[in-house]
Design a binder for these strands. Sequence first.
RNA 1: GGCCCCGUAACUCAGAGGUAGAGUGGUAGCAUUACAAGCUACGUGCCGUGGGUUCAAAUCCCACCGGGGCUACCA
Length: 926
Amino acid sequence: MTTEPLEKAYDPRAAEARWYPFWMERGYFHAPTDSDKPPYVIMIPLPNVTGTLHMGHALMVTIQDILIRHRRMKGFNALWMPGTDHAGIATQVVVERELAKEGIKRHELGREQFLERVWAWKEKNGNRILEQLKGLGASLDWPRLRFTMDEVCSRAVLEAFVRLHEEGLLYRGHRLINWCPRCLTALSNEEVEHEDHQGEMWSFAYPLDGGGEIVVATTRPETMLGDTAVAVHPDDERYRDVVGRTITHPFTGHKFEVIADSYVDREFGTGAVKITPAHDFNDFEMALRHDLPKINILTEDARINENGAQFAGQDRIAARAAVKKAIEDKGLYRGRQDHAMAIGVCQRCGTVVEPYLSWQWFVKCRPLAEVAQQAVRAGRTRILPELWKKTWDHWMDNIQDWCISRQLWWGHQIPAWHCQNCREVTVARSAPGACPKCQSTSLRQDEDVLDTWFSSAMWPFSTLRWPDQSTDLRAFYPGAVLETGFDILFFWVARMMMMGLHFMRDVPFADVYLHPMVRDAQGRKMSKSLGNAIDPIDVIEGISRDELIAKTRTYPVPQHKLPQVIDWLKKEYAEGIPASGADGLRFTLAIHAAQVTDVKLSIPRVAGYRAFLNKIWNAARFALMRIGDDVVLPLADVRAQLSVAERWILSRLDHAVEETDRALLEYRFDDAANAIYRFFWSEFCDWYVELCKPTLLADGDSPAKAAVRATLVHVLDTSLRLLHPICPFATEEIWQKLPSLGRYREQGIDSIMIAPYPQADPTLRDAAAEKEIARLIEVVTAVRSLRAEYNVPAGKKIGACVQADDGFAREAMLGFSDEIRKLADLSQLVVERRGETPRESAVGHLEWCDVVVPLAGAIDLDAEQARLRKEIEKTGKELEKLQRKLRNEDFLAKAPPDVVDKDRGRLAELGTIKAKLADTLQRLGG
RNA sequence: GGCCCCGUAACUCAGAGGUAGAGUGGUAGCAUUACAAGCUACGUGCCGUGGGUUCAAAUCCCACCGGGGCUACCA
């Protein structure tokens, strides 16, 4: 009577293909709105429709799916909300590039037709990344899938805009913003990245009207065309006389003054600053204070405009050189210095951004931010790991108004209408029939669209049909946790907090958990241009070395670096990447996901963890082959028949259950993965499976055998459920074959993913059994060590003797003599009091016993003597250290008594061991 | 410039006052009734450096060195 044996090795491909559709068909990912279970909600960080999966996504999905599956099994109505965002700039750029191939420009097509093209592109390509998430096992509630530009979300976005405007928290202003001259749109501060750059500080003199000059310095000489003042510190003696004097611009001829402002740093440069209000944020502020004119000198694409005199029409790079040359020609050049500076570039395209004066829409963030900050301070939302709290506070303390308008076509068009007659701007939920001010019907909708992050900020409630007070909204707001990378703490998390608190009067999530950034084994950011980006799909499915190299060649690696990158790939991936399956990748990521800022992921190590899944597979294979088809009793029915070994493994299992569950509740994914790994491999496979074999493999039936069969199934069933959130596919594949399946089916449970998560059970704890088996393991290991050390050929039968003074210990070892003989490969085992060590024997001294292996003729006297001397020396050193400690009056007086007692006990043990070692050495004639 | 994080075995990392750990790799041996994606055994640590606090420091404090990140207006 045997069950059909499992295949020899675990095949992730088959399991993944089988179970994802199974779960989907049964609707197990779906969280019903009308459930009476408590809700547990995670909103997925919206991938861009243009995006493809990278390791960061893989980590994100792994963590969130672990959380969701764990809570679902624990009885929550777990909703993992899927969606994508429309990624304004990125998507528009992609489609424009596609059009360029056909030789079409966006403006030739017109707004409406262009948007049709973008929608078409989105329908065709926008779900690729979602399909990839399925490959990782993500248990997202697919029927609820939303898109930031769909009707439901768009309605919420417009409503939010109008309400914020009504409340005076959103306004239109003529202000300086960051402008990308290539994307031709405004950017928020967060969309500007700062790159270190070696620039120069270039000095020149402005001649003062009526004689004299004042020397200023700049890193951007071309901006002098827009200068409308020179500022000095009011208390600066050097410039006391020039304040109020006028300057005639050497090129444009306009006149401006030397002003005094305490913002100026007297120590820096000459102590005099040129002021360009239209092209510098600080200068803009100063212009407001002093009511200075703001002269814009740039066109949208960063050319000098008509205000730039003879330089008009030149682009900014050429203009810089030309301005410098012209200044030199006038004899006004006053020197240069190297100057390290950070330069702002567009996050999307890398182009140097310009501060640019224009009409834009802004959200007044300060009042919103204060509420959000207060919520965090009050613990209504926790930011985890805690180290990010400071970063959060720093940003919130310094928050500035948020520029939300973008000069793009792809996005939510701003619900504001400009009167062509009186220029009145009307914000409304739908197009007004006439201008409320002048009744003109000549209205034009604002052409700009909203920042993608504006719509993302509404995500936790826009997806639930806000502003309708829908049942979804009541059921699923607020969420449990927002899990994402720390790089979008401000882009997204902070803004959801602000909007959630404002519109819903409640935080959008109880916890913010920020996961580490995935880097390569050297700690470098994984990026295609570095050539070190590994596609998660290649880890799951495997890829040969040559294919990997070919793929990397298609990445934008700079030509001169390519040979180096290829060499590295050849070395690092000499054998290519073996197929580790989704579970192998997930387990690896989980075990790396400590509460830190970086995960250094060495891809070849993933293969090491796929071995763990195979180990589980094979342990199950063994059990299923040997359990046979007869009915297996539930554990409860065999509790009275459990031997020490069963009681031990069940006690250890309970530790693992408790540890794993707690770790998952505390976002300690590494601890959870480790606890399962250790238990399953080092305890269950290494010891229990071996210990149970004699009983299990014996002929016939017996209560003992029934107990073993029940225990094996119970341990497998429990550990699979324990591991399921981390490795969903393999656990389902195996769990479906266990004899316990029938009992679950009776309760309507036909999948591990809806089975209950294991709970710690104090009645399974058994300290006595743990101690006994720990001793057994020590003895077996000691014998094995001695055998190996003396090169006893494997298979050669020898005897051994355990000498212990403790009667209980002796009794226990006697009881285990069959097990010890088998595991240590001994012909016989003697258990006796500690006494004389026979000659020609190797001895292992444990704290509670000596393990003696007689090795007549086999023993190398010199080697054994040397080994013993080394041991004695080591023990002696430790002994001395302890003695010194215990002689220290302060220690005895101040240390807690239990610490002192512990050290005293240890001193005695070490003393015994050392004496035994010395005795043995003496007997060997040393 | 300010702030934050990290320096522990060859590698990747846990440990956060009380005997320095795991996994991987390495070395040697092994076809032992599930597993060679396996089994058994074995090693190395001035816990970055220098001070301090403490009976006791890898752990707490200070400074420094090295690596990384965030942030900022030094024109």
